[in-house]
Design a protein around this nucleic acid. Sequence first.
DNA 1: AAAATAAAAGATAAATTTGTCTTTTATTGA
DNA 2: TCAATAAAAGACAAATTTATCTTTTATTTT
Lengths: 143, 143
Amino acid sequence: MFSKTCEYAVRAVIYIAQTSKHDEKVSIKEIAKGIDAPEHFIGKILQDLGKKGLIQSLKGPKGGFYLDASSRKYSLADVVKAVDGDKIFYGCGLGLSQCSEAQPCPLHHEFKKIRNDIHRILKKAKLGEFNDQLEQHLAFLRR
Amino acid sequence: MFSKTCEYAVRAVIYIAQTSKHDEKVSIKEIAKGIDAPEHFIGKILQDLGKKGLIQSLKGPKGGFYLDASSRKYSLADVVKAVDGDKIFYGCGLGLSQCSEAQPCPLHHEFKKIRNDIHRILKKAKLGEFNDQLEQHLAFLRR
DNA sequence: AAAATAAAAGATAAATTTGTCTTTTATTGA
DNA sequence: TCAATAAAAGACAAATTTATCTTTTATTTT
Ligand code: FES
Ligand code: FES
C-alpha cells in the first residue's frame, strides 16, 4: 500500500502529535524507539517533512520535533502525499500511465472507489486529533 | 498499492485471459506489446505464475501462454497473492509487524475495511470472466 | 566563552526491485 | 532429421529503496 518510508513517516508524525502536546519536543531517538524504526533513517524522513513545513523542529538541548498550530491542521493524507506522492489517491491501480474514465482499465470502477475511500480516511485524520490514544493504550505504533 | 511486477502480472494475466479464449496461445512478445511491458521481464513473471499453476504455457512454434479450465477459476486475488504475497489483504497498513484487533494501530478499523474491500473485489474477479472487454474497447490494458 | 545536546547535512552502503541479455530446452512443421 | 519457433533458465546490470555512519550547524546550559 505505502512505501516503508511512508509507513515510518506516518507512524512518526502520529507519535510526535501524541507526545508533543504541550509544546514539548521529541527527539529522534525517542521517536525511533516509540515507533520501532531505524533512528538515522527516520531522521532523514522527518528532516524532509520539516523542509516541507509539515512538522517543526529545533536543534540543540531541549530541541526535537514538534507540531505547531498550523501543522496540527494537516492530515495524514498530506503526509502520505509528501512522501509517496499522490499516485495512491489518483493513479491507476493496474499501473497504467494515468487513470482515465474514458479508457478505463478492467478494474477502474472498483479501484476508483477504493482510492477514494483511502483518500477520504486519510484526509479526515488530522494530526491535531491524535491526542492521547497512545498513552491510554487505545492505539499502538509498534509491535 | 501493488508492486510494478504485480501490476504487470495482473495486466498480463487479464490479457491472456481475454485473447486466449479458444485454446489459442499468446506469445510473450504479443503480451508485452499488448500491455506495454518489458518483454523479458514479463517472461520471468509469467514463468513464475506458470510454476505455481496459475497459468499454462507451451514451448515451440504455436506455443505461448494460455489458461486451462481450472486456471479460469482463479481470481486476480490469487495472482496478486502469488506475486506480492497477502500483506495487502491481511497486513497492517501502517507497517506494524502484524495487524491486531487487540493492539490496533491508529487507523486499524479504517484500514481493515479497505483491505477487505480490496480482497473482495479481487476475489470476485475470476480470470474466466475477462472475455472480450478488450476487443470491444470497453477496457484497456495499456496507455 | 565553553561544553553538551540534538537536528541538519552529506557521503556511503546494503538490499530489493526492476530490467536486460544470452543460452538452453521443448515443440512444431517442413 | 533439420530448421524454426517460443518458453525456460540463468547470469548480469541498472535503478530505487532502505539503512548507516560521519561531520556540521544551531541551541542551550554551565
Ligand atoms: S484506469 Fe485503472 S484505475 Fe482508473
Ligand atoms: S493494526 Fe494496523 S491495520 Fe490492523
